[in-house]
Simulated scan of single mutants.
Amino acid sequence: MFKRVLLKLSGEFLAGASGFGISPEEGSALARRIVTALEGTDVELAVVIGGGNLWRGARNGQGMDPATADYIGMLGTVMNAMALQDAMESAGRPTRVMTAIQMHAVAEPYVRRRAMRHLEKGRVVILGGGNGAPFFTTDTTSTLRALELGADVVLMAKNKVDGVYDSDPRKNPDAVLLRDLTHLEVVERRLEVMDATALTLCMDRGLPIVVFDLFQEGNLERLFRGERVGTLIQS
């Protein structure tokens, strides 16, 4: 059973049908799903949320300096973190937004020990601003923060994808769901779980990863209770 968990969310989870922007309705539904799953557990939860619903450097930043495009994307993750904080607190769960890019008027600066203290007090810590440097993905930020905060696992939330398959299930109807993998198997089979830097960090430090469908009813509750859901990747 996991005690401290890092949940990696896609920014698109906050978007409406258009896949762009922030939908208050989608944010509220996402927050209620997380808050409900936490009820009655002792799980300490940190969340890293992406910014793809607002900005994608590779697409939106064409013709820009790559570092500048990445910084804009990091600011987008802070906007998403603030929206998720508002929705979660409306659902009754105390939270703190912490960001690697200092902006004292809207969020606390990320300080490892302060973040751990918030977790110990039962607050959900939502981490924005990436890791403060360009050229790193949200996957890598999730792994770094999980290791820093002493998380037991990284939960990679997906939408309508219930784990890791041996091929793309959207293209291959015979694709097989893989319930158990090692980090090395993911590398050798070139399975698309997370970027190479993040996966290597998890492998080097023995950090487990669970890939699961967040929107399948009850999945997050089951994970917080220590049940098997989706694909488990471990050493």
Rank of each mutant, 00 (worst) to 15 (best):
G40Q: 01
G76W: 09
N60G: 14
L207A: 06
T141D: 06
M1A: 14
E188Q: 15
G218Q: 04
L214E: 06
F2E: 10
T41K: 10
A37F: 03
V125R: 02
P109Q: 10
A175R: 01
M74C: 08
F13S: 15
G51Y: 00
T138R: 12
R190H: 15
V97A: 13
S28H: 05
A115P: 09
D42S: 13
R222L: 02
R113V: 00
T68F: 12
R190L: 04
A31I: 00
W55N: 02
R113P: 03
A198R: 07
G51D: 08
R114K: 13
S28C: 05
I34E: 06
L6F: 06
M98G: 02
R56S: 03
G11M: 07
A81W: 02
A157E: 04
V124P: 03
T182Y: 12
K158T: 10
A198C: 07
R32Q: 13
S23G: 14
V210E: 09
M1Q: 11
T200K: 15
V48M: 05
L149C: 00
S28G: 14
E12G: 11
L6M: 06
V97K: 09
A67Q: 13
D174T: 15
E89D: 09
K8W: 14
D204W: 02
V97L: 11
P208G: 08
A151N: 04
G132N: 10
I49F: 11
D152T: 01
H183T: 01
T182S: 15
Q85N: 01
G132R: 10
M156W: 03
L149R: 00
K171F: 01
D162W: 00
A87P: 12
M103Q: 14
N172D: 15
G51M: 06
E148W: 07
V186E: 08
Y165F: 15
T137N: 09
V229A: 04
G206Q: 08
L201S: 03
G130W: 01
R33P: 00
L75R: 00
A157R: 06
R205F: 07
R113E: 15
K8Y: 14
T138E: 04
